[in-house]
Design a protein around this nucleic acid. Structure first.
Lengths: 352, 352
DNA sequence: TGTTAGCACTCGACCTATTAGAGTGCTAAC
DNA sequence: GTTAGCACTCTAATAGGTCGAGTGCTAACA
């Protein structure tokens, strides 16, 4: 009869197996465990317990006479355990993160550069692949719009949203446009749209603006359409990645098949975008999320573990950072690093 | 005695060997060649010739009883041959490129998107990895500068250069700035800088502008510094890549060691940037360049062949496209594709 | 009843022939 | 100069054999 719940001893043994496996990467046998400190049991007893753990689905046996390796379910148990303990010993890694901090602040003059830095620092610190998404644009509020004439009948529109992300759009217009009209148009755009959330800019508002534009509606609607389109046109969530080549350090990910899949995911960004949305949609529940193997929302990463977290740029404006590595990743370190980093980012943005 | 030059028959045999190898990817033996159309010789004769070709360095023998594979020198001969023939039969691939054309034009509203499209289309069409660099910014001429007040003491600068590349810079100033000053500043910047090549903006011009700014020099020099810095600050040549995962299709590149190197090169862009500069510096000689194996200027691609070409956005403003694949790539197809594409891009930009 | 020693058994990793086949180099004849 | 013929070389693939880590089970023990 297979037991239904893990008693204390089983938990201890399971944790010991997983920890050992994380260190060595090799299937671990009963003798190895029996020789560890803490629980004084013979290998035979351990074997019996291990058999139970296999039946319960926490560990796997690659083949009859091999040791055991953790299953997804086993990792899940380990990670949950870890997350619970996490609150306490955060202080420990303070040093490393201080290092990272200085590295971040150094060149933070531009958002893009900052994000690239963060990704790089993450992958370098953990030896896994890292990604970071720019703060989600279409949750932002418009802060400023400015049209300027560039040439006879060509206008450049500058659109600034909260968080100081800037978008540009060049607009070709049919006829020439005089300074007065341009000024009026600037007024109209700013008074109507400033402070609005981008997702709230709908057709009815646009048509109302066209109406207000009165006689100039011809040219003006051209411009408004272009601006509106440019504002909405941000399907492509910007994502920066780093250290994808790290996967080659882990044999279980480095075979052609898998490596190709992972690299593709990193290259095409599509799947990473999905990952970001997935994370953002869950972000209220908990700061950090861990997807183990099959749990992953990203098809090409079913053989990996994915750790994601949300950072806050400004109220309601979030971005996502993620670490992708083998299932036997150093969860402890990754969780610490990522936790530190998000709070780091949070406070950094709050300051500005 | 080893002959010094390739006679006609040797050339024929060499080409046959290379072509066969390109198709099969396996070492080719003397019998295979003797059975081909065109030259009616027994395998024994071919063997003798092959021995010569080995001595002359055009082909290699992986081991004593294997067939032959082309050496870098052999590929070089083949490619040169091909380039010479190239002028004639360009018409052939017209179809495919027409397809590509429509694909390109479709969403060419923004430079960035266009470049991504091109990279994608290139890698998809060839099954190799592709890259494209944005036109080299600091050769461009300034077209338009506009400062706008965004908030009380925060200004956004929009800088447009020829080719309609746009840069933005947010400038925090110490004190508030009034409309009049802003207008004057805009005038000053535009009259002084418009039409100038970015590399010609030096300290003497900047200090002259500060002088002209007169009493407002305090605030103004702040602004000018920021603008100047923003203009110059384009070390990071933008490069878009696609299809890096294609390398996994070629066993000779797909082993961990090599794959990791190539992926790293694609990820960190540094080496690709070097490649672009290398290409641009040679671009006058010839449109297309082929680097075979050791010839490659990029360290991590010594096992690859790299085909690059230059496209022209506007007079004197160039960008680079490149294909990276195995040494046994389909040079014929790649050369055609890349040639078509560059002329495509050239004409497209000329139209605008 | 839980724990442990003991032992036969399993299975992959590794090493060592052995074989088959493709392809060569060389010699001798045409 | 070309070719047929043949001995030779080297790889890839296959099979057999051994080693050792680790298991599962049984029987004895506290």
């Amino acid at each position: 009869m297979v037991p239904l719940t893990l008693d204390e001893r089983k938990k201890k043994i399971l944790l010991a197996i997983i920890k050992t496996y994380l260190e060595t990467g090799e299937p671990v046998g009963s003798r190895t465990i029996s020789k560890l400190e803490g629980l004084d049991l013979s290998s035979a007893t351990i074997r019996n317990e291990m058999a139970d753990l296999v039946d319960m689905g926490y560990i796997l046996q690659p083949h009859t006479s091999a040791g055991r390796i953790p299953s997804d379910k086993g990792y899940r148990f380990y990670v949950d355990q870890l997350m619970a303990e996490k609150e306490k010993d955060i202080a420990e890694r303070e040093r490393e993160t201080d290092e990272m901090k200085s590295l971040l602040v150094e060149k933070a003059d531009k958002m893009e550069r900052l994000l690239k830095q963060v990704a790089k620092s993450l992958s370098a610190n953990t030896n896994y692949a890292a990604m970071i998404s720019a703060p989600r644009y279409n949750m932002n509020r418009l802060k400023f719009i400015q049209l300027s004439r560039m040439e006879e009948n060509r206008i450049v529109a500058v659109i600034v949203v909260e968080g100081n992300m800037i978008k540009n759009q060049i607009i070709d217009i049919d006829g020439p446009i005089d300074d007065e009209t341009l000024l009026a148009l600037n007024m109209l755009l700013n008074t109507t749209l400033n402070g609005m959330a981008i997702e709230d800019i709908n057709l009815s508002i646009i048509s109302k603006m066209k109406q207000q534009a009165g006689e100039q509606a011809g040219i003006i609607s051209e411009v408004i359409d272009a601006v509106a389109e440019s504002i909405r046109d941000d399907e492509d969530l910007e994502i920066y990645t780093s250290g994808a080549n790290n996967i080659f350090k882990y044999p279980e990910l480095a075979d052609n098949q898998r490596a190709s899949e992972i690299i593709t995911a990193f290259e095409e960004k599509k799947q990473l975008t999905d990952l970001v949305y997935e994370t953002l949609s869950h972000s209220d529940e908990k700061g950090i999320q861990v997807y183990i193997g099959e749990e992953s929302p990203v098809e090409n990463m079913k053989d990996c573990s994915v750790v994601t977290a949300t950072y806050e740029l400004d109220e309601g404006i979030h971005g996502t950072i993620g670490i992708i590595g083998p299932k036997r990743m150093d969860y402890d370190k990754v969780l610490s690093t990522i936790k530190k980093l998000t709070t780091e980012l949070d406070t950094m943005f709050k300051k500005n």
